[in-house]
């Protein structure tokens, strides 16, 4: 069909495109290889399995009597668990939500009203508020009192007075049994 000269020209052209294709393929493979190689280095910085194993804590609430407060550790921080008395529940629910610095109704902060689960780290600068031990100063609202700068929390863990900007954080938790919660 085509004469020899044409075949030679197309042969050379094909040679060049084949060469470019090879270089392109090689570069692509190299790029994929480098990206795949980098992944484990970055991945190794994620929280490791032993850290993740401690990312949830199960707490058996049965031994905690009405009016008692329990502190458990979760992800390196204290979590306050309060088995609230009916008076404390009522005091928490009767508050005018719009008057709060960080408006939140008590119902939004508990799953069952008798049990309050909050992270015991003051939202001002991170101290641990008092109120968990018998004899501790609970502040005028019967909740918690932070001795560092005087933040005062109510029986729902909401900020009422003092420099803290927000309510004590409610961690993610769920009931895995009648009296057992899993935090985190």
């Amino acid at each position: 069909m085509a004469n020899l000269a044409d075949q030679h020209v197309t042969g050379a052209h094909n040679g060049e495109t084949r060469r470019d294709f090879l270089i392109l393929t090689a570069t692509a493979i190299g790029g994929v290889g480098v990206a795949a190689a980098i992944w484990p280095f970055i991945g190794s910085l994620s929280p490791s399995r032993d850290t993740l194993a401690l990312s949830t804590t199960e707490v058996d609430l049965a031994p905690v009597q009405v009016g008692q407060r329990l502190t458990v550790a979760w992800r390196g921080k204290p979590v306050f668990i309060d088995h609230r008395t009916p008076e404390e529940i009522k005091a928490a629910q009767d508050v005018d939500v719009s008057s709060l610095r960080d408006p939140q109704p008590d119902s939004a902060r508990v799953k069952k009203p008798e049990w309050l689960v909050i992270v015991g780290v003051c939202t001002h600068l991170g101290c641990i508020p008092l109120g968990q031990k018998t004899g501790d100063d609970r502040g005028p609202f019967g909740g918690w009192f932070c001795p560092c700068h005087g933040s005062i929390y109510d029986t729902s863990g909401r900020i009422r007075q003092g420099p803290a900007p927000a309510n004590l954080v409610v961690p993610p938790y769920e009931y895995t049994g009648e009296t057992v919660i899993k935090i985190g």
Binding site: F41, G43, S44, L45, S48, R49, D50, T51
Partner: peptide, 25 residues
Amino acid sequence: AMQYTPHADLAFDSVERIMRDVDYG
């Protein structure tokens, strides 16, 4: 080096932690 502990009481275990618990360790 980010995961290793250079103390005689902890070094061996820190290497095993890398082998077992660190992603891609």
